[in-house]
Amino acid sequence: MSGKESTMTASKRALSAVVGVLLMVAVVGVVGFTLHSASADPHKKLYATKTAETIVVDGKTYPKATITMGVYADTAQAKEMGYNTINKKDYVQYGPSSHIVLPAHTYVTMTIHGYDGGEKLNAPFFGKVVGTVGGTMNVDGVDVTEIPADQVQHTFTIHSLPSSNRDPLFVNIPLQHVDEGDNGFLPTKDPGTNYKGHTMTFSFITGGAGEYVWNCEYPCGDGTYAKFGAAMSAYGYMSGKVSVA
């Protein structure tokens, strides 16, 4: 090919290429780092408390652990109940963390305090208690196997990907709603009021180590299609991770 040679010497050109390419790789790296930081879990992990006790289920002995969570109608309520939320939006939310850590091969007893009202589940199946020891949960001292689909405030549903190397784990807990008529659920903006919610207690047995997710199956993303936008579709409010370690 004819034409004048470029003004740059070969060594300068090579330097320009190396510097240029590294610079552009760095730009992509910075974008990646920014996105990675932005998607970090919004809360500190919540660890289950191991106890010295053991329990025998179906002929096998398991160590025991406990963990307690709450679900709050909005940020103000969460704060009042002693949960220092760092969530940006004033959404309905689980606390004190969206990322819980459970010990492996353990009999985990979980307590969830629920302070919210409720309407009706989209999919009635999630009114059933699934995956707990004995197939039941305890609501304010009474054992039940399901909550009617129109009396649920939220659900706590743990699930996993199939055909993984982790053990299957599926737990579904419907939370009894707080009837606005009785002495329980009160407007959240009224200071000095103690909320009287319901307390759900249930136990399940974890398998080996693995990563799982949990989310709520109750439509509580108000004002959006199927009420599954807003809080429901924002990671860290009504959804999160479960690590079994």
Partner: peptide
């Protein structure tokens, strides 16, 4: 189907 599409699996 939204946020947890990847996890909408069962066995």
């Amino acid at each position: 189907c939204g946020l947890y599409h990847a996890y909408m699996e069962t066995s």
